[in-house]
Each structure stands twice: as C-alpha cells, then as structure tokens.
C-alpha cells in the first residue's frame, strides 16, 4: 500500500474512532455525567453490565470495528514516528512487518475476546 492510500485510511479511521470512542468514553468513563441526564444504568464495569453488552450485537460489532480502526490509526501513527527517525533499510522493513504483525495479532485476539465473551457470560452466569 502506498503512503497516500495508507494516510487516507488513517484519516478515515480517525473519523470512525471519533464517533465510536466518543461513545465508548461516554458510556464507560462518563457514567456519572450520563446519570445526570438519566441514561446511565448500573456501574459499567460490573460483570452484569459486561454480560449485557456482550450479548448485544450492536456492542459486539462496534467493538470489533473500533478495535480495527484504533489499531490501524494508532500503529500507523507509531510507524510515522519510527520511520521519521530515519532507520536503515532493514530496520525500516522490520518496522513495517513488525507493526503489521502486531496489529493483526491484536486484532485477532481482541475479536476473539469480543466473540467469546457471550459464551463466558452464559457459563459464568
């Protein structure tokens, strides 16, 4: 992928993150504020809340989407910084391959967690 395409995806991923992470931050961390508007439920990190979200298709899909977008956006940014340090040709390749592998690995792991959570909830009650 040429840098122009990679950069355009970086911006697009940023927009996706802005919406989804904004939502995530509001639900998970600004729960007191949401409570002021009467939309907050139980403590968001309680197991019951986790189970409720894991069972929802909306939350599962947005988790995976946010995971992919944030990994791409963040690791592309890290790549920018690393490549601007002017590494040699071998190190440059290592940065490209290493960050791609790291991103794919974390994406598979995070997706597994999102998909396995409903099963764990059913077993754990």
């Amino acid at each position: 992928m040429r840098d122009r395409t990679a950069w355009t995806w970086h911006i697009a991923a940023g927009v996706v993150i802005l919406v989804l992470l904004g939502l995530h931050m509001a639900i998970m961390h600004l729960d007191q504020t949401l409570g002021l508007f009467g939309v907050a439920g139980a403590e968001p990190v309680d197991w019951e809340s986790v189970v409720a979200r894991a069972g929802s298709a909306f939350f599962t899909v947005t988790y995976v989407l946010l995971l992919g977008a944030a990994l791409y956006h963040g690791l592309y940014g890290l790549r920018n910084i690393l490549l601007e340090l002017n590494p040699g040709a071998t190190l440059r390749r290592a940065v490209n391959v290493g960050l791609t592998a790291l991103g794919l690995g974390l994406f598979v792991f995070g997706t597994w967690a999102a998909l396995a959570a409903p099963g764990a909830a059913a077993v754990g009650g």
């Binding site: 840098d3 122009r4 990679a6 490549l83």
Partner: peptide, 12 residues
Amino acid sequence: TLSGGGGPWRCH
C-alpha cells in the same frame, strides 16, 4: 513520487 513515503504525508 508524491504518493510515496517522501511525499506530503510526512507533513504534520
């Protein structure tokens, strides 16, 4: 040339 790694994408 401009679409590659030395192009405007390195400007922040």
